[in-house]
Amino acid sequence: MIIPLIDSVIYTMLAATTPVVLAALGVMFTNFSGMFNIALEGMMLVSAFFSVFVVDITSNLWLGMIAGIGAATILGLSIFFICHYFHAEIFIVGMGANLIATGLTTFMAVQLKGSSSLIFENVPKLRRIAIPIIENIPILRGLSGHYVIDYLAIAISVICYILVFYTPYGYHLRTIGKDEWVAKTLGISITKHQFISYLWCGFLCGLGGAVLSLPVGVFLGGPVGMANGRGWLAIAVLCLGQENPLNILAAALFIGATSALSDLLQVTTSLSPRLLMALPFAAALIAIVFYMAKEHKTSLGIKI
């Protein structure tokens, strides 16, 4: 009785972590490069839309994933170019991008299928992958049976950690993050890195969006959208994880755990389900307050 519950809490926690950690890693890159991207929600949304839409056309999951990543990247690059060439404030452009992503996906869904929700019946769906042995061990079982993107998210966090701390690219990125002047005097191109960081952000948010829509083959539009606040939680996660991808993963797991806890308490206690919905956001805020109070870390590199 208790063990299956623990299994499913672990499973749910990991599943809830994936989109958040991917988006948080994406925004981490843009934060390093000094062009903080807040349009995560929008990028995930366009990816969720285009990935499932392309899967419907081509019946190929990989093409769908690539389409989602491509769509998110295009949105990200549009932010980059508007800021870079038209001297716009990144923050405002990011908000605009979020709005336009919501508007565009809903509008396109309605134009294509006459409904803001696209439910595709005969599309291939992302399959779960069970890990042999682990899938039979109680408690650890929750680690098995995830989608390929879930496993990728963990791997990407580790890769990002190596990338940030053990490669020249990471050194350059951190240099820009700490002091753009130093980067300039050493010939590290800031614009190039900003561009690359937006590619990263597009790639990661694209994956994060694809994992929302591909497993079930649906896209659901509307003012809140499928991303349902995950992009904002990702920013909170970045605030907690600062510039270390593994810390970001840990922070995202924490947020995932609160989400799993909120689901668990709904089915095991008589607490109001409505109030439990506030849990991930409240927990993120409280964690940030505690973290900042303890560490006295400076806040994110955005000038807000």
Binding site: T167, P168, Y171, R174, T175, K178, W181, V182, K184, I188
Partner: peptide, 21 residues
Amino acid sequence: RLSLIEDFTVAENIVLGIEPT
């Protein structure tokens, strides 16, 4: 205005930009 990253070590600062891998 010195262009060093204060949190990095001397060696890291020296090779910054041409890190051997």
